[in-house]
Amino acid sequence: MSSLVTAFLVGGALCLIGQLVMDLTKPAITPGHILVGYISIGALLSGLGLYQPLVDLAGAGATVPLSGFGHTLTQGTLKAVEESGLLGAISGGVEASAAGITAAILFGYVAAVLFDPKG
């Protein structure tokens, strides 16, 4: 039960930061910029060893936001570097995030085939 509460609080807080960025900075910030920012900062924090503690604390509260996706990329890369060096730096990220990326493209395509935009 407590895992749900921390997931709610931390996940909510991460989204709150995104909202503040959108509302308080220049209006040219689009959802695309937010997504790019979160994945990049998540990957960076993960590399500095700062994201894992948040994941340990909040579980899905830290992995569901897109910064968690960046974390997955970096952790996959670091693990692969240990195993296969330079080649791992290139292949590790995609290997670790393959399920998410492929699912997004597959479901995206299927949804586009099945549904029409309603406006």
Partner: peptide, 20 residues
Amino acid sequence: HHYSAERQFRFPTEQGVQRS
């Protein structure tokens, strides 16, 4: 037309964006 303009000038119509 709202939706033909929206997709050309702004976002896809089904994207969850907040309008200013």
